[in-house]
């Protein structure tokens, strides 16, 4: 499939910290279709976080291209790349990274500041999304919400601008098992609803049952499970 219509398309992506050192990231190819969900596993090395940073355009690769929503994010520079990231990628962090001093709804609206969504629709949309995710007090200070609720606010913020790709970085690591289940249900459901591709990085074994498509960084490096033509994922999606 043409990488330009993919939610995510990676081609010959290589990254290392210093010339001559070993590649930290070496991904010959990886495609995610819109709405597709994939789990990236492996030990807690630096590779996975670097890969996410490369995809988000926060770190520059030594070689290769990363297409998000059809545009090579590394071909963009400065504010254009930041805007592209804000409009096409949602990021869910392990530690939520909610903005302190901002209410739940303001956290969600901050994401919209950089989108093309008309300003007068911001509050309505944000409140609706929060309500949809089970937050009935949109004006509450996130610090006063439970950990599970904070995660929901973070999910709402990541999906507020209808991204084509959601990057979830250890989304359950800060949650107890019960909340973790709810959070993952929520994340996967909202991504499906918005037809956003989901790339979830986790070494939580309980995640394995949730994703049909899975790979470790090492497998990606060997070119295994890299193509979207992985039968299970493709079939699962189309079926």
């Amino acid at each position: 499939m043409d990488s330009r219509v993919m939610a995510l398309g990676i081609r010959d992506l290589k990254f290392r910290y210093a010339p001559g050192s070993a590649w930290v990231v070496d991904v010959p190819a990886l495609d995610l279709e819109p709405g597709e969900q994939m789990l990236l596993t492996g030990g807690s090395g630096r590779g996975k976080s670097t890969l996410l940073n490369l995809i988000a355009g926060l770190v520059d690769p030594a070689e290769g291209r990363v297409f998000v929503g059809g545009t090579d994010i590394h071909s963009l520079h400065g504010a254009a790349r930041d805007l592209h990231r804000g409009r096409t990628i949602g990021v869910i962090f392990q530690t939520f990274n909610l903005l302190h001093g901002f209410s739940a709804v303001e956290n969600v609206m901050t994401a919209m500041m950089f989108s093309t969504i008309p300003r007068r629709e911001h509050r309505g949309r944000a409140e609706q999304l929060l309500a949809h995710l089970g937050i009935d007090r949109p004006d509450a200070d996130p610090d006063r919400l439970s950990v599970g609720q904070q995660q929901r606010v973070a999910v709402a913020r990541a999906t507020a601008c209808d991204p084509v790709l959601v990057l979830a970085d250890e989304p359950t690591a800060s949650l107890d098992p019960e909340n973790a289940v709810t959070a993952m249900d929520l994340i996967q459901a909202i991504c499906r609803e918005k037809n956003a591709a989901l790339l979830c990085v986790s070494h939580d074994p309980s995640m394995k049952d949730r994703f049909e498509r899975q790979a470790s960084l090492e497998e990606l490096a060997r070119g295994e499970a890299a193509e979207v033509s992985v039968a299970a994922a493709g079939a699962g999606k189309r079926g």
Binding site: L83, R85, G86, N97, M113
Partner: peptide
């Protein structure tokens, strides 16, 4: 906070 704003799409400038 700056890092989060950047991820959300805010430019350095």
């Amino acid at each position: 906070q700056i890092a989060v704003l950047r991820v959300l799409g805010c430019s350095r400038a």
